[in-house]
Simulated assay, not measured.
Amino acid sequence: MARALLRTALRRSLDQVKYVTPVEVSGADDAVARVYQQVERDFGMLAPPVALHSPAPGALAACWMMLRESQMADGKVQRGVKEAVATAVSAGNSCPYCVMVHSATLQSLLGSAASTAVSAGRLDAIADPEVRAIAEWARRSASRQESQSQDAPFAKEQTPEIAGVAVAFQYLNRMVNIFLDGSPLPPTVPALARGSVLRVLGWFTAASARATLQPGASLDLLPAAPLPPDLWWAAGHPEVAEAFARASAAIDAAGREHVPASVQAAVRSRLADWDGRPLGPSRSWVEDEVLALPAGERAAGRLALLTALASFQVDQQVIDAFRREQAGDEALIASTSWASMAAARQVGSWLRIS
């Protein structure tokens, strides 16, 4: 029964995306189709967190490239450790969707005790000292103070993969918090069956996690670009460095097209003083900040600032106001992608690697 429910849930997974309409497989142009083919081949399904980017093909390729080359491709770090990093970062960002997906995979790879400990934030209960130390590092990496005061508990040659997963999920958590609900399972799955279906999902994703994936296979989706200085941690791993360089260039290009310069400046200024903690719970802080923007750019500023600093506060009202300034799904994805990447790169710049 659980397998049948999972198959149904996977077929309907794109229906879970909010605010935008993902490109259908049958109607995808070449740029989107190439990404979709890789996602289905390497991940085993068209994952909604990736597919939600499809109205903006550059952001779609960028998201997939960062995820594949840091987390999924073969390298110097075991996939179970990478899943622990993804789960710990997602738990720290209060992204229940990503926690459910990656803790389910973690359970299949490292066991239920480790999965429960990471997803619940009880990291001292992880039996394996290596996994425990890296998960603790990942959970603290979003705090400027804690990140800069801790040495990395892993070898230098493992840095690009582990830091890459952490930065990729700083990006992805923000997009998922906005465009997906809190569970990868649609509400049609009965409550009594949800635990079983999640376990089957873990087996399903773990099967793809155990596959051998050649590094660099996604790089031809975007043109070459130089590695920005704030992505220094990726140097030393050609495929991860290329992935993040190309992805950041594509997202920056989309930002130049859709995010006003005044909004970009406001986000960068706020991030420069940010300590890593989400702002809120009210939105009063952002209303004060957008008053400094031109009247016709305040909705874009509100969306970008909330995406970067408190993605859980983005709701229908914020989206509707943005659409009155900029219509179309591409503008919405490009704007949130740019702001999510700005925050993720800021977190990555804090990392202290010995």
Rank of each mutant, 00 (worst) to 15 (best):
S26D: 13
P238A: 11
A253S: 13
K156I: 09
L271D: 05
G296K: 04
I333L: 07
V77T: 08
A117H: 03
L67D: 02
A254M: 15
M100P: 08
P55M: 06
G182Q: 09
A250P: 00
A249W: 09
P55E: 01
P49Q: 02
V131C: 01
L303Y: 10
A4S: 15
N177C: 11
L198V: 09
G164D: 05
S147I: 02
P228V: 05
A234W: 12
I178Q: 04
F154V: 02
I251H: 09
T116N: 13
L60Y: 04
D329N: 15
F204W: 05
S103D: 02
L14S: 13
A28Y: 00
Q38C: 13
I162T: 02
L231C: 14
C95I: 08
A253T: 10
V23L: 03
R210E: 01
V50W: 04
M65Q: 14
G27I: 09
I126G: 00
D252Q: 15
E136P: 08
R323W: 05
A334Y: 07
A266F: 08
G44A: 07
Q107H: 14
L332P: 04
P229Q: 15
R277H: 13
V131F: 05
R323K: 12
G92E: 07
R12S: 11
A84L: 05
P55K: 10
L303G: 12
